[in-house]
């Protein structure tokens, strides 16, 4: 014969374990719903929602050493630094495509960041309203870039000209690679200097709008 107190203890333990199972299932469901909500808010989805805008890309051509202006429409983030990064990413995507006029191997996140700062004012010069764009390229992009004066200069010039075409306030551009200063892009183009957009060479006639 089982004593009474043992029957009561068994009943209490049974009720407690059922209650714990119910709470566990509830918590799991709640967590799963929270996770789904979090995914919806992830920034990777945001650009697809952003409206498409017209941008001007200054696309380099190795065969004659020129920059050709091309109109494209892109979904752009509202923030101007993020938008500059998206525009340059599109430019480098064109260079990575097969049959490009200026072939440069593509890498993920070739443009890590673009920072927009007030341009330093030279002594004795009138206050400039210009902006300095600091373009932080990835080390993998620089390491994979073809070596040569023409090809490296065209990459640098097309980045500077594209920034200036879409953000006319940008008057100066500096480059970093993985957040550090690097002497050259791939052995030739000087990355230690400040490039002035006013000194960029002339560009060829523009082509029609492209998606």
């Amino acid at each position: 014969m089982i004593p009474r107190y043992q029957k009561i203890l068994f009943g209490v333990l049974l009720i407690a374990s059922i209650a714990m199972a119910v709470v566990l299932v509830r918590l799991r469901e709640k967590n799963h719903q929270q996770m789904l909500k979090g995914e919806d808010l992830a920034p990777t989805v945001a650009p697809a929602v952003a409206p498409e805008e017209q941008v001007t890309l200054m696309v380099a051509n190795d065969s004659d050493g020129t920059l050709v202006s091309e109109a494209h429409s892109l979904p752009l983030p509202k923030d101007s630094e993020a938008s500059a990064r998206a525009i340059l990413a599109k430019l480098l995507e064109i260079y990575a495509a097969s049959g490009a006029t200026h072939p440069v191997p593509g890498v993920a996140r070739a443009v890590q960041q673009v920072f927009l700062l007030p341009a330093p004012v030279a002594k004795g010069a009138p206050n400039s309203a210009g902006e300095l764009a600091v373009v932080n390229l990835s080390g993998a992009f620089a390491d994979g870039h073809p070596s040569g004066i023409l090809t490296e200069s065209l990459t640098v010039e097309s980045i500077c000209a594209t920034l200036h075409a879409n953000l006319p306030n940008v008057s100066e551009v500096r480059f970093l690679v993985d957040g550090q200063q690097r002497p050259t892009l791939a052995g030739h183009a000087d990355l230690t200097r400040t490039y002035l957009t006013a000194e960029l060479p002339g560009t060829a006639a523009s082509e029609g709008s492209k998606p």
């Binding site: 190795d62 065969s63 070596s147 023409l150 090809t151």
Partner: peptide, 18 residues
């Protein structure tokens, strides 16, 4: 004197200094 795989023919460069 330089040599490169990119582009075509001879590329003649003058300094970009003003």
């Amino acid at each position: 004197l330089h040599a490169s795989e990119a582009g075509s023919g001879a590329h003649i460069f003058v300094s970009s200094l003003a």
